[in-house]
Design a protein around this nucleic acid. Sequence first.
DNA 1: AGTATATAGTTCAGAGATGAATAATCAATA
DNA 2: TATTGATTATTCATCTCTGAACTATATACT
Lengths: 163, 163
Amino acid sequence: MSDFAPTEARLQVTRSKYPGFPRDPAALVRLIKHLYKEIHDEANAVMKPYGLNHPEYNILMMMYGSPDNSLNPSQLADAAGEKSANVTRLTTQLCEKGYVARASSEDDRRKVTLTLTPEGIALIESFLPDIVALLFRQTRKLDATEQAQLEVLLKKMLAGYGE
Amino acid sequence: MSDFAPTEARLQVTRSKYPGFPRDPAALVRLIKHLYKEIHDEANAVMKPYGLNHPEYNILMMMYGSPDNSLNPSQLADAAGEKSANVTRLTTQLCEKGYVARASSEDDRRKVTLTLTPEGIALIESFLPDIVALLFRQTRKLDATEQAQLEVLLKKMLAGYGE
DNA sequence: AGTATATAGTTCAGAGATGAATAATCAATA
DNA sequence: TATTGATTATTCATCTCTGAACTATATACT
């Protein structure tokens, strides 16, 4: 299992050498880093049988989370947390696989509309059972109350960025 | 500022299409993903003037968090959450820059010992003020109690992995 | 001792991600 | 309407990461 004790020990040593180093903020950042790594690696493993990786999964799910199954590249970049150059590459691959369709926008011809194809939707709904199981597994140590508390605190922390 | 509302809207749409999709676990995973992205990008920006990136910073800090400023590659991979192949590349670069020294181990000749040089320690202590400021900024929306609560919950969540 | 299995670290080829530059379009305004 | 400045998306060169194969050493077993 993922043991955080060594990280805490390292923080103590760091503080003994450099007393100004703030323990709690550093611990939070390192926890998030470790959690993200696990989330990323496990999502990659689950998606591999479907010929997708974690970023591609994210792209597809952001579009699926839109009422008409479509988003612009810039919206996708924001939603999926990917750089725009990366969105171009990822969506090109998904287009080649037939899961996404590219169309230029009517009203603003700079914009591009990316839409899930029926094949894309079918693919999503084929892997969602595995993803749902993964999500439950990743959060199984927290009861409903704790999940709600954690969500509040993470949102609060996220609010400190980009201001 | 980083607005999580669009993500919550997408989760609602997703659930309307696929009711079994668990809202809270998905929200937690997406929050962690967004937070990690911010942490990663901001750390990269802070370290750039020092000629380092976020992974290299992590490597150096893991060694600094060891009493004798040294770790094996496999310990480093575990501590920094990097793949071993990546640790080899990163530490080779740090060796070339003169911040880290490589030595083969006495007792077990398969092992390698990586140690911070005086230059490496000096570098760390030169950028730590910037890092400390960053850490305070990243957690400034949370008071001490909330930071402690968040740490407990994140640790609990992390405990659900790799078992 | 000899053989098999495990562990530590590296190498390498291919995949993935990033920043900076570019092209196309739109909006504002003089 | 011509010019200037934003905005949108893409391209490209470069840098970074990954999994799988490989080398070397150590440990366990017969």
